[in-house]
């Protein structure tokens, strides 16, 4: 007599249908969660680890970041009579150790995550693309 105890009114299916219908008509707190990515971007967290940026005035070119980089991503190169790190983004693992070890707090990481490129050479970010000048107020 197991067939008597079966749910012949298909209550489970009807329950599920009601849930999906609520999603269709956005009843309750059921918003569309997808972001139309290339046209609109999700906000990036303040401590997001993206492309590096180097404070032009603070960096002393000491090379501690070069020594501490686990993937040997950073090399110190000469740029406008001073020495600055050059970052190969193709090897960077975005660990943020270079930011932590910097004695002058010159290095930081920005929220730029759109780093795809056409060649390995263009992934090497020299000081000309990394430097920024801190605004003095």
């Amino acid at each position: 007599m197991t067939w008597i105890s079966k749910d012949w009114a298909m209550g489970g299916i009807i329950k599920g249908l009601i849930v999906t219908l609520k999603h269709v008509f956005r009843v309750g707190n059921r918003p569309t969660v997808t972001v139309q990515y290339p046209y609109e971007k999700m906000p990036v967290h303040p401590r997001f680890r993206g492309l590096h940026a180097i404070d032009e005035d603070a960096c002393i070119g000491c090379g501690i970041c070069e020594v501490n980089c686990p993937n040997s991503t950073i090399t110190i190169v000469k740029h406008n009579t001073r020495w600055y790190p050059q970052v190969n983004m193709g090897m960077c693992l975005f660990c943020g150790i270079c930011v932590d070890v910097c004695p002058m707090n010159a290095m930081k990481m920005t929220g730029n995550y759109e780093l795809a490129d056409y060649s390995r050479e263009s992934l090497i970010y020299g000081p000309d693309r990394l430097l920024f000048k801190k605004e003095v107020n």
Binding site: T20, H23, R30, T32, T34, Q36
Partner: peptide
């Protein structure tokens, strides 16, 4: 579109 609405997506846009 209906599948997308059920799954909290946009579908083709």
């Amino acid at each position: 579109k209906v599948v997308a609405m059920v799954q909290a997506r946009y579908g083709p846009m």
